[in-house]
């Protein structure tokens, strides 16, 4: 990675710069409001590097959730990353060693979105270009979250209710998915399939999420013929 590669990569990352700095500040502030020193925010941003995962982490850490719950919730929230990896197999195929390790480690939603859309300019090394994008993005996230954490630790205003930012983030993602997707059945399934076990088992711990996930996956497999039908028709339409 040299200066030329970084300079070529930087303009592509500006939207992520804005997004990560601002969401990072909110995240860091939440961590400090929950009583965690900025050091922990930095550690999470360096080693986890997952926006919504870390937001959920504030809730898990502050209620001292059992490690199994932490693992389970992080797994289902980040399940979507499996698909990111699948579509990056080819792009990362010839990258070797530590570079490949870092590219895979740093495959956040935003970095994935950039990498899947961008074409490296001809005069720069493509692997260095991908690496620059991934590293710049993570730097923005670390800077934003640590700035928020430090501000949250220094400024003494009443922060009661700032934890709502996590709810707001998930509502934004849900709204975005609703507006951009054609299929709303999975969202309804997620809503109903979680409400039912919540009413039966109650909110204590996160026990209700396990039956909920079973309902979600089972339900999705059951309605697979319904959901995949329109796609098949579209494919047929295109080939004609």
């Amino acid at each position: 990675m040299n200066r030329k590669t970084l300079a070529a990569a930087f303009p592509h990352t500006i939207p992520v710069l804005m997004g990560y700095l601002s969401i990072g500040i909110v995240y860091g502030w939440m961590m400090s409001a929950a009583g965690f020193a900025p050091f922990w925010t930095a550690a999470a941003s360096v080693f986890v590097f997952a926006g919504s995962g870390q937001m959920l982490g504030v809730d898990l850490l502050s209620r001292a959730a059992p490690l199994a719950d932490i693992a389970f919730l992080t797994l289902i929230l980040n399940f979507r990353h499996l698909v990111y990896g699948l579509s990056m197999l080819e792009k990362f195929h010839d990258v070797k060693g530590l570079k490949k390790f870092y590219l895979i480690f740093a495959l956040s939603d935003e970095t994935y979105a950039l990498l899947s859309g961008v074409q490296p300019p001809e005069e720069v090394d493509p692997h260095g270009f991908y690496l620059s994008i991934a590293a710049l993005d993570q730097i923005y996230w670390i800077v934003g979250s640590v700035a928020g954490a430090v501000a949250g630790a220094l400024v003494t205003i009443n922060t009661e209710g700032i934890d709502f930012a996590m709810t707001a983030l998930f509502l934004v993602i849900a709204t975005e998915q609703w507006l951009s997707g054609k299929q709303h059945l999975p969202a309804f399934l997620g809503l109903g399939g979680t409400l039912l076990p919540l009413l039966i088992f109650g909110p204590d711990g996160a026990t209700f999420l396990i039956p909920a996930l079973v309902i979600l996956v089972g339900g999705l497999l059951l309605i697979r013929p319904v959901l995949e039908k329109p796609e098949r028709l579209e494919e047929r339409g295109e080939s004609l």
């Binding site: 959920l56 289902i76 929230l77 399940f79 979507r80 499996l82 698909v83 699948l86 996590m166 709810t167 998930f170 509502l171 993602i173 849900a174 998915q177 609703w178 997707g181 299929q183 999975p186 969202a187 309804f188 399934l189 997620g190 809503l191 399939g193 979680t194 409400l195 919540l198 909110p203 996160a206 209700f208 999420l209 909920a212 996930l213 979600l216 996956v217 339900g219 999705l220 497999l221 697979r224 959901l227 995949e228």
Partner: peptide, 26 residues
């Protein structure tokens, strides 16, 4: 990769996000 992984990859995330919204309001 099995087709079912692609299928779950496409449709599980919106379901999981709805689940997490309920989780936030639990």
């Amino acid at each position: 990769p099995p087709k079912v992984i692609h299928y779950l990859g496409a449709y599980l995330p919106p379901a999981v996000i709805a689940m997490l919204v309920v989780y936030c309001y639990r």
